[in-house]
Structure formats: C-alpha cells, structure tokens
C-alpha cells in the first residue's frame, strides 16, 4: 500500500509535466485544428533556457522559470507567425507536415549549437534539496515544487480562459472561427495568444523536468511531446480539463507500469492506450462525437 501511494506521488509529479505540455497541444488543436508537433521542442527549449539561466547567469529557480516561460512564449508566437500563419487556408495535412518540419528544425538546430550530448541540471540548493516523510512515503521538495507550480499555472489558465476577454475570444474562435471574425474578434491575435500561453506552459514544464530528472538533451522533447499528445487525445483533444486529466492519467500509468511491470514497456503501454482510445472513442474522455456535413 505504501509503495502504491509512493508510486501515485511519483505518477502525479510526472503527470503534472505531461499535463502542462498537453495543455499547449490541446489549446492549439482546439483553435486551429493542428497537432503542433513542434510543441515538444518548445518544451525542450524551455529546459535549455532554464539550464543556461541557472548555470551561465547564476540565476535562482524562480527567475529562471519566468525567463524560460517568456522565451518559450516568444518562440511559440514566432513559430506560429512564420510557419503556420501563411497556411491558414491550406489543407490540414499541409500544416501538419509544416509542424513536423518546424520540429526537425528546432531539434537539430539546437543540437547544432549545444551539441547532442546530454547536460545535467545544476543541483538545487537550500530548501529545495530536502525531502519530507509522511509515514514511509517520501515527498521530495522537487515533487512538491512541480505539483504546486503546475496547480498554480492551471488555476491561472482557467482564470484566463474563463474570465478574461482574450479567453472568451479564444473560446469563440475555437467554436467558430468565421463567426468570431464577424463579431469583431481578431482571429490572428487570438491564435497568437493561444500559442503564447501554450508555449509558456511548455517552457515551465521544460524547466521542471530539468530539475526533476536532472538530464536534458536536444531530442528530449520528442517522447514527452508525443506522450503529452496522447494525454490530450485521451482527455478529448481541444478540451482544457481533458488535457489535465489526460496528463495525470498518462503519468500515473507510466509510473505504475514501470513500478509493477517492466519499465521497458511503459512507452509501448502509452501508445497502446492511444490506439485503443482512437479506435474506441476518438473524441476522447470528455469529447463529443462530431459528424461531417454532406
């Protein structure tokens, strides 16, 4: 039982990171129906920005977190402006291929500059190194940090989407882009803003994963990116609470498979879940079926 609870804690920590990435996927999909393959790489950039802030500039964790969110937000908006905006009216496959292109570009471009070798994150100091015990269950300070930062960001996101003007615009554009435009909403601005928010969250996830796993490399965005996408599909792509649920679910599944089964199979299980969902209920846990108009 204690072991199980310990795994749940680990799963929620990992799930938090997936959830943060999945939110970006789901928001972008909701608004322009694009699987933004480059999203995992924005997360990788977030990890590297955090790394350089903490090592080269000797900044603390929180300033580094903010800087990496900011850099990722700018990167996300830039990607959208350069690569996706000219294709607003192209086929979905064309945009998807572009997204794959952007992803390759960022991955190998980064590799060119920082070299392919993994780097290890600087150790945290002070309070961050401690761990807490309740019975035999161990919480590390990092896990508490990850979980609480994720919760704060999610609450903030919910507030932005539900209460603010731009959040309403986001929801309007994702429901019906043309109608929103006719109502005087600037669709381009809204899409940019969606990329901004999604990428900032991915940046946060990047630095969090850096302090959690300690090792980063230019291709680190690939797998978690794909898994976060699975999480988004699981919850129902385009639906924000769905991405959160999906993120935690995938995190828990992965930790459980590694803990009680064979850690080699955790990727396979995640992809098997993906295929099963796609076949059984492609619209995901919280999604609604849609039908094509003839």
């Amino acid at each position: 039982m204690e072991q199980f609870l310990q795994q749940v804690i680990n799963g929620i920590s990992l799930g938090s990171i997936y959830a943060l990435i999945a939110l970006g996927y789901t928001m972008v999909y909701g608004i322009i129906k694009l699987i933004n393959f480059a999203h995992g790489d924005v997360y990788m950039i977030g990890a590297y920005v955090g790394y350089f802030c903490m090592t080269s500039f000797k900044l603390g964790f929180f300033p580094s977190l903010l800087i990496s969110m900011l850099v990722c937000a700018i990167l996300g908006v830039t990607i959208e402006k350069i690569a996706y905006k000219p294709l607003r009216n192209a086929t979905r496959i064309a945009v998807l291929i572009t997204a794959i292109g952007v992803s390759l570009f960022i991955e190998y471009g980064t590799m060119f500059f920082v070299k392919p070798d993994p780097r290890s994150y600087p150790p945290l100091t002070g309070l961050m190194t401690r761990s807490f015990r309740i019975g035999n269950i161990v919480f590390s300070a990092q896990q508490i940090l990850i979980i609480s930062i994720t919760v704060v960001l999610m609450v903030l996101l919910q507030f932005i989407v539900k209460k603010t003007r731009i959040g309403k615009a986001m929801r309007a554009v994702s429901l019906d882009r043309d109608a929103a435009q006719l109502m005087g909403i600037s669709v381009d601005k809204t899409i940019s803003f969606t990329f901004l928010i999604g990428s900032a969250l991915a940046g946060a996830a990047g630095i969090l994963v850096g302090i959690y796993y300690n090792s980063i490399n230019p291709l680190m965005g690939m797998m978690p990116g794909l898994k976060a996408f699975v999480a988004a599909v699981f919850g129902g792509i385009g639906i924000i609470p769905g991405a959160m649920i999906g993120g935690y679910f995938i995190g828990l599944v992965e930790v459980m498979v590694a803990g009680y089964g064979n850690s080699m199979f955790r990727d396979a299980v995640v992809f098997a879940i993906l295929i099963i969902i796609l076949i059984v209920k492609p619209s995901g846990l919280l999604g609604k079926e849609t039908r094509e108009k003839v």
Binding site: I35, L96, V233, D267, A268, L274, I275, I279
Partner: peptide, 26 residues
C-alpha cells in the same frame, strides 16, 4: 485504424510504429 481520419490516423500509425520498435527492442 483506417476508420480514423487525417491527423488521428497519423498519430495512430505513429503509435503503431513505436510499439513495433519496442517489440523488436524489448
């Protein structure tokens, strides 16, 4: 999987290839 359309199919086939890779590896 071919009942799925567009990007859903893309993702399903991607997952399938990853599973095949893991089968060969592990």
């Amino acid at each position: 999987t071919l009942r799925l359309k567009g990007d859903y199919l893309a993702i399903a086939t991607l997952g399938m290839a990853e599973i095949i890779k893991i089968l060969f590896r592990n």
